[in-house]
């Protein structure tokens, strides 16, 4: 990735040397539960023993739609896919989807994490966000 990229926000996901990305969650040793994005305390028990954890990059599609109307604060492409993916560890994550045609997706289909171009800032910087794509499809 060139330096002309920036991530949507810090702490949500990170780029690996090979250009792939991984979501950064939190896991509480005492509750055994994982959450995303990482918080200071476990959102299930309030325990402070939260450690950073890299979340599974694959899962299954659990819910999906497409946004066709420009929502406030959003400057990216329309329409865009939006949904919930159940990661391989059972955590359900709210996510952008690379597919904006709801009829092209089906419940439970395998999905994989990809970096997606959200928008280009006025200075040419490309803003990257995380998204899920059908497993096997090109990013």
């Amino acid at each position: 990735m060139s330096t002309a990229n920036r991530l949507l926000t810090d702490g949500l996901f990170r780029e690996r040397p090979d250009g792939s990305i991984v979501l950064i969650g939190g896991v509480s040793a005492s509750s055994g539960r994982t959450h995303f994005p990482r918080l200071a305390a476990c959102p299930y028990t309030g325990a402070a023993d939260v450690e950073e954890v890299e979340l599974p990059t694959t899962g299954n599609l659990w819910g999906w739609t497409a946004v066709t109307t420009r929502p406030p604060g959003y400057d990216g492409e329309l329409p865009f896919g939006f949904g919930v993916v159940e990661l391989d560890d059972g955590l359900r994550v709210v996510t952008r989807l690379t597919v904006a045609d709801p009829a092209a997706l089906e419940f439970g289909q395998p999905m994989r994490l990809v970096a997606d171009r959200l928008q280009t800032d006025d200075d040419g910087t490309v803003v990257l966000t995380y998204a899920f794509a059908p497993a096997g499809a090109d990013a």
Partner: peptide
């Protein structure tokens, strides 16, 4: 139009992850 809410952080709005009717849609689909 779509309700804007300070409930959502700016990055959630910018990322298209703060769209109220889209959450309604996921709930409807379920």
């Amino acid at each position: 139009g779509i309700i804007r809410s300070s409930f959502f952080e700016p990055w959630r709005e910018q990322g298209g992850l703060a769209v109220t009717p889209a959450y309604f849609a996921l709930r409807a689909q379920r």
